[in-house]
């Protein structure tokens, strides 16, 4: 007898599409948080499939730190046009200008934490009741505790010790006015699953993920892409290296790796022998052992 079996990528794809449709059915005004990184690209790609041939029934929201890679922004605009969806951009710079956020200074300055303020303000401004993100449980230990449907109180806070149990395929998105949900359709995907899916479906990605020559400098073993708003320490020098990025955040918190991998296949080969996790090059996680948990509790992505 023919066996009815889905391989793991198809099972994950089916699960994520189920979640996205559930969001559209249960919430009045969802939004998809789009960073221009591979995970949010996959979520929007899956959303396109989930509602085809109709348009994606929610907008994309980009929280722009103002310190993004130029490649990310141009990819974003092209991608959104292809999807045919609406893009909303809210910038950390305006939060700073209006006095809602206070900029860090010095060589270690990052706008990473400030994004939370801009994000929560945007959620309130548009009355979004569900914000869909690309976070995966395998990325980080606090994220391993996340639900698919993750409740946020009226202050946007996460209460990890008292989460709603999530059973079978039954997702409870009920909430009071002013509260919202964060939704993570890629919860069960690993980094390798994401790349295998990109390979199988030939999904376009920003050039940053592929090997290229770039002006960089090194700090505490991390390779940073250089931009003129970044302050160097006395012994740091800008040099040219052949690099690529494994994750794409803002320039101040994303480290590059030296690599010659210039195709998806080469990246997968590189991942298979890699001995360092994806977020090993994320400076935002290394501020302390609880860095991600603390940020998530206060409303971060």
């Amino acid at each position: 007898m023919f066996s009815y079996n889905l391989d793991h990528l198809k099972e994950l794809e089916s699960e994520s599409i189920f979640i996205l449709r559930e969001v559209a059915a249960q919430f009045e005004k969802p939004v998809l948080l789009f960073s221009g990184g591979k995970d949010s690209i996959i979520v929007s790609y899956l959303a396109k499939k989930a509602f085809y041939p109709a348009k994606i029934p929610f907008a994309l929201l980009h929280i722009d730190t103002g310190h993004n890679f130029q490649e990310t922004i141009s990819f974003r605009d092209k991608w959104v046009e292809k999807l045919g969806t609406k893009l909303i951009v809210r910038s950390v710079q305006s939060s700073i200008n209006s006095g809602r956020a206070h900029e860090e200074s010095g060589p270690y300055a990052s706008r990473n934490i400030l994004q939370t303020i801009t994000l929560l303000d945007a959620i309130e401004e548009f009355k979004f009741d569900a914000a869909i993100g690309g976070a995966r449980r395998d990325e980080e230990k606090a994220r391993a505790k996340e639900r698919f449907f993750s409740h946020r109180d009226e202050f946007g806070q996460w209460e990890p010790k008292n989460q709603r149990p999530e059973l079978w395929n039954l997702f409870n998105g009920r909430k009071k006015i002013g509260e919202h949900f964060r939704i993570f359709p890629l919860s069960n995907w690993t980094e390798l699953d994401v790349w295998s899916y990109i390979q199988r479906n030939e999904i376009e990605l920003p050039s940053l993920y592929f090997s290229h020559k770039r002006d960089v400098f090194e700090r505490h073993g991390v390779i940073y892409g250089y931009a003129d708003f970044m302050e160097l320490l006395p012994d740091e020098k800008v040099k040219k290296l052949q690099v690529r990025f494994r994750t794409i955040g803002d320039m101040t918190c994303t480290g590059a790796i030296e690599s010659n991998a210039s195709t998806v296949n080469e990246i997968i080969d590189e991942l298979l022998v890699s001995r360092v996790t994806e977020r090993g090059s994320r400076i935002d996680d290394q501020r302390s052992e609880n860095a991600m948990e603390e940020r998530k509790k206060s409303g971060y992505f």
Partner: peptide, 15 residues
């Protein structure tokens, strides 16, 4: 995964 789990040496939630 969580700070409280590391501090108390217990597991609080499904990981």
């Amino acid at each position: 995964g969580l700070k409280a789990e590391r501090e108390q040496g217990i597991t609080i939630d499904v990981a």
